[in-house]
Design a protein around this nucleic acid. Sequence first.
DNA 1: CTGAAAGCGCTTACAG
DNA 2: CTGAAAGCGCTTACAG
Lengths: 334, 334
Amino acid sequence: MEVMFHMSTGLAGRITIREVAADAGLSISTVSRALTGARVVAPDIVERVRKSANRLGYRADSVARSLRTQRTDTLGLVIPDITNPFFPALVQAIEHAARTQGQSVLIVDADNDPQVERAALYTLLDRRVDAVLISPAHATESLEALAETARVVPTIQVDRVIDEALPWVRVNQSQPIDEIVGRLRSGGREHFAFVGQSSTMATSFEREGAFATLMENAFPEQSLRVVRGTLTAASADVAVQQIMRDWPETDAIICANDIIAVRVLQELRSSMQRRNVAVSGFDDTLIAEAMGLTSVRQPVDALASAALAAASGVPGVSLHVELFSTVIFRTSTS
Amino acid sequence: MEVMFHMSTGLAGRITIREVAADAGLSISTVSRALTGARVVAPDIVERVRKSANRLGYRADSVARSLRTQRTDTLGLVIPDITNPFFPALVQAIEHAARTQGQSVLIVDADNDPQVERAALYTLLDRRVDAVLISPAHATESLEALAETARVVPTIQVDRVIDEALPWVRVNQSQPIDEIVGRLRSGGREHFAFVGQSSTMATSFEREGAFATLMENAFPEQSLRVVRGTLTAASADVAVQQIMRDWPETDAIICANDIIAVRVLQELRSSMQRRNVAVSGFDDTLIAEAMGLTSVRQPVDALASAALAAASGVPGVSLHVELFSTVIFRTSTS
DNA sequence: CTGAAAGCGCTTACAG
DNA sequence: CTGAAAGCGCTTACAG
């Protein structure tokens, strides 16, 4: 690889297959076949082509190839907000898995805005991506553009599912909550609260629902302790204050993500809670380890693999995949 | 936009310009010109073309356009590790700025591996990106591939600079450190330590250098208190223990990023420090607000704009831009 | 196994 | 202002 672009240095035009053919004294058809391995070419010819190509620093123009083959080897990835700490790991897993199979990734950050998302989907289709992987920005407002896209190209919902009928790859959200609550109950806790986010976000909504269902079954006599906030510190503070005022018996708080959880921990400390309150987060971000916060590690690599498999359009591949998380118990729940 | 792909539903082939031309009873040249606005077309003709295009759900194939125009309207973005909390905000800023000017972004996560990075750069060149924006993975091992790439396409170093001679857009790393130390000194602190990361990472290296220079000038009689670690909790713990053992007089710790800072805060608390030690981080991630951690907010939007401007290749645009940060003082330094 | 030709879907000189 | 033609750089039937 070291000298690949060596000869194409400086001057404007890049080396094309035509020049390689001339250099090797062969037709461009033969050069193409020798390089792509599409059909059998005599070994000595292949060698001759390789030599010329390397010496000239030839690399096939993938734009031209795409136009001809009608494949771009490119995936469109639409993320609602990459500064949400869950997504970087997902983006990394998807990009890595894609690269492994020769695909590149066009990324779009939808700014949590369904209108931006819609426009982005059109752009991706214009660019003829082979497939679209999307975590929809909104539970209802993203539906239409998602469906339109799915009509044109394999489209996989990743992590956030808003249309059950279309392909999706998701993570079960109740299993880790069951696991955390189970562990804490055997540790003697029995007054659980949940701090979530806006219900238009699919995963937070699912987590809240899972929590509510579990509570109704486990503690039918208790009132449901659920508060919704945003990712800001002030919002978490309000949530903690509300919980402690309305339900002072609370001895465990399940948070919909690590950021909320960290702030809840902080607020509990600074408000001089005499009682020990267990706290857990979601997403197992770097901060969870740093803070000793119990959190939920989602299987991003498996999620990425399943998403790419579903996107490949290969018949027989599962278009609906549900995966499970690992709860990482740390000091915040002990 | 709502009905754009409406008619292309279902069956394989997408609508091409040829079909729009037939539908409108015009030549494909005219259709192209009417739609791109490249040259003056009679208003009624434009209207006729628009109608046909909309009705048929036509959208130009950008692969074909790129082959013809030799522009892809695509930027290659190479990031060393998107799970490093600084990068999501940068990726978001770049993607947003790019979209605003009609460019898409092919993203690659180099896994902190110069070999992966090199291969990624070749792939981006194969894909004929208009420019490359890169935060190099390694201070020396990334040099060669960076230079090769720069020979073919406008290539801008973003945030991390390893080759001063090539274009870059960076953030001054000493200004915020000067600012933090200055503020803390007027608060009476005078024994500063620094916890950094591996010196092969350009920014951490610069921060460490800035700290060292400042200390030599301000406290020439003191020994230099610098420890390097990794992003893990265990590493930060060791760092804190080393500082407190070797330099027990330390009353302020500047950390090279927020993750390290949070862990340092934790370790200080749990080790029952009787003395109050100020702590600051870098990158002003969500966690800094949640923890009340003083941190350095880098101007990612301006960084992105400057990078895109430099990548545009427009003559007169600055190819070397240095920007400044804002220190967000919070309770961790009071 | 190799070559000449067609064509992917556009844009843009070149004529008129 | 509009159209017929060339061509971007490949891959792949079609012949041989």
